[in-house]
Amino acid sequence: MRLYYKYLLILFKSQMQYRTSFWLLSVGQFFIPLTIFAGLYLLFERFGQIKGWQFFEVALCFAIIHMAFSLSECFARGFDQFSSLVIKGEFDRLLVRPRSTFVQVLGSKFEFIKFGRLLQSIIVLVWALSNLPIEWTSIKAITLMLMIVSGVLIFTGIYMLAATMCFWTVQGLEVANIFTDGGREMAQYPLNIYQKWVARFFTYVIPFGTVNYLPLMYILGKTQGNGIIYLLTPIAGGLFILPCFLFWQFGVRHYRSTGS
């Protein structure tokens, strides 16, 4: 953990070397999702609702997913940009150091400019929450936290899967964008507005549904029954990262036996 913090520090210093472009890019990261949010707002202004969901309910969903996405982009960028590490042969360097590859890859890159995006999603979150008549309980508050954490874990898991693919091929990795950028785009609306097969895929294969649908229903009071079960769904979703981690380990082993 201390090492991770050190990595953070050194990369922050690096990015501060280019201060103007740092601030401009941060501002950009603030505004780009803002136009998407503006689009969402305008659509609600015209249509009023989407399959029974009101604007602020969807805004809450939007904020949670974008928050999770920006956090994972900020902190797990090392995996997202892993292909360049492999192409340049820098991965060998990580292997001759006495630390786990996971921490080192994680520490190889941070994008602090993504804080702009994070800030934007926090503002949307506060705005949405202050306009929703939610009866807050501690379980609901914890659920909300877990939704964000679990979202970060899912996005990170996808980055790891894509990074592991680099050990076999570095071509066509953009497909992973379907699940990261595409997943974000899709998950900013509650999952049940989509066709069944999409909803199923994104619940059981890549468990976005456990972040943006089931617990969301609970927080908004659209469900009956035990809250604990809904509290558990984001935790289940977060477990997604475990197989990704194993796959990563497998990839490293493959790399070390082929050296390709």
Binding site: R2, L3, K6, Y7, I10, K13, Q15, R93, P98
Partner: peptide
């Protein structure tokens, strides 16, 4: 290990900062 054609130093920060980080990596 020194790989002559690759760098293990962090490009944009003073050399000393890289040394300090390596200190932590190697404990």
């Amino acid at each position: 290990v020194v790989f002559g054609q690759r760098s293990q130093l962090w490009w944009d920060v003073p050399v000393m900062d890289s040394f300090e980080l390596l200190k932590d990596i190697y404990k």
